[in-house]
Write a protein that binds this DNA or RNA. Structure first.
Lengths: 99, 99
DNA sequence: AAAACATATTGACAAATGTCGATGTGTCGG
DNA sequence: CCGACACATCGACATTTGTCAATATGTTTT
């Protein structure tokens, strides 16, 4: 996939909503069933489903279906892409500081 | 400042718009005057001003006034906060993979 | 097959966001 | 002091986003 401005913005959409940050924080303690996430958040089931779609589309979360349950977990690859972008910004910017 | 979900989402607002990614990419090559950014983007001056406010509020960009010019540059501290959050997600999530 | 359950999709709606033109504010040069 | 300039703010508007209730889809159990 070509990494252009649009794609980069899409990745970071994962992190720019309060409820999605809550979801990511929960997932950081390991894979969770959608129903567990629903318990932890003050949103309805369709709203959770909506956020999970955005998180999966961004590549930061991966989904696994098991019978009628959906299990979600953080994607190390997705997080790496986000982290690497920040790393590039930091490093190319650093040399230019205090010029 | 307390780092809660709301603040975390605020930081990442910097990265979730296509034009702001363009601005950040440009700033990665060093401090730039607002007028230079305006040349590089296909937006009007008020729109640029709006994006610069969001970027500064998020802490990822810092502003320096010099006469009638505004100079913007990446904030290493701001980028570090964002990077550290991703690092926490990655590391706490890692141990739990393939369980 | 039917009922119960977990999740996704749809449609509606209010709020937030990105954008612009018009205008305001502060700064410099004459 | 005044005009020109750089940038910020305001008001308006269309689009996007987050949310919900209602409904659809797919799976398990009885």
């Amino acid at each position: 996939m070509v990494i252009n401005e649009k794609n980069t913005a899409l990745i970071f959409k994962a992190f720019c909503d309060e409820n999605r940050i809550r979801i990511l924080n929960i997932l950081s303690s390991g894979e969770k069933c959608a129903c567990k996430l629903l318990e932890a958040l003050s949103v309805t089931q369709p709203t959770l489903s909506h956020h999970m779609k955005i998180l999966c589309d961004s590549g930061v979360v991966k989904a696994r279906k098991e019978g009628k349950w959906m299990h979600y977990s953080l994607s190390q690859e997705g997080l790496k892409v986000a982290e690497e972008y920040l790393g590039i910004l930091k490093n190319t910017g650093k040399e230019k500081e205090n010029e």
